[in-house]
């Protein structure tokens, strides 16, 4: 791969003409989606509009029938979850991400623990230090990385799940309903986290039913309706009512 061929105008994510049929139902009928560097895109649409399927394709979990997915200009269509992750796509699934019986640092380092090569002994001290540093960078206030995740609130757990995805240094972070089931203050915390992540240059695709959240963090809305691109707008062009109207296909 030659460097320098990618100019900044290449979008981070480019999905073109995506189609998917599940049996008789055509869920996606030629959808396009582009996401720029550090951009926060709110992907909205009514239930069944195809938002989650589209994001599962980006994460490599679902293969499109036709269409093209490019990340930084490199084709990624249908190459599987591992390739998607290697290309820098991280998806946070609510409640699937964490081990309740493992502490905060353990969850952040799950699968890539730091250990001393000779004795195979886990370097607990360093993992706790680095976990605390990572959390501080993201302004996540968790005072003790030795706490078990099971004892924490929904918002804290969501924050840890996002922090974990961020420590993989992704190019694109996909969040599916990150604020569902959170208390008001925790929602604010999660939104702030999304802002922080995007200022670090990470692109974010946010799926949520809480449309008011989108007005706080999204740079652009992409509205899907019955499997096609319906509208595209910025928060300054519309209001909550306008967004709801667009979601209903009008």
């Amino acid at each position: 791969m030659t460097s320098g061929t990618r100019d900044l105008s290449t979008p981070r994510v480019e999905m073109r003409g995506i189609r998917k049929r599940f049996g008789a139902l055509e869920v996606l009928r030629g959808v396009d989606l582009t996401v720029g560097r550090g951009e926060v895109v709110g992907l909205v649409g009514d239930n069944g509009a195809g938002k989650s399927t589209l994001m599962k394709m980006l994460a490599g979990a679902v293969v499109p029938d036709s269409g093209e997915i490019r990340v930084d200009g490199t084709a990624l269509t249908g190459s599987g979850p591992r390739a998607a992750r290697a290309a820098g796509i991280e998806m946070v699934y609510q409640d699937l991400a964490l081990c309740n019986d493992v502490d905060v640092a353990g969850n952040l380092f799950l699968g890539r623990e730091i250990y001393r090569p000779l004795s195979r002994r886990l370097d607990h001290k360093r993992m706790h230090e680095e976990a605390a540093k990572d959390l501080a960078t993201l302004h996540i206030r968790i005072s003790d990385t030795r706490q078990l995740v099971a004892t924490m609130s929904g918002g804290q757990r969501q924050a840890i799940a996002i922090a974990r995805a961020v420590t993989f240094e992704p190019k694109v972070l996909v969040l599916d309903e990150p604020t569902a089931a959170l208390a008001a203050r925790e929602v604010e915390m999660t939104l702030q986290l999304i802002r922080d992540v995007s200022t670090r240059g990470v692109s974010v695709v946010l799926i949520t039913h809480r449309l008011q959240d989108l007005f706080e963090v999204a740079d652009r809305f992409v509205v899907l309706y019955e499997g096609v691109n319906h509208r595209q707008m910025t928060p300054s062009e519309t209001d909550l009512g306008g967004l709801v109207t667009a979601m209903m296909g009008k």
Binding site: N100, G111, E113, R120, L122
Partner: peptide, 28 residues
Amino acid sequence: WYVFNHTRFGRYVVAVGSNAESLRRAGV
């Protein structure tokens, strides 16, 4: 005791019982 508490294998044993899907997604 050493393996259970101080090695990656021990950590993964706990993680399998706690949330195997999470561990699988972590590449283990």
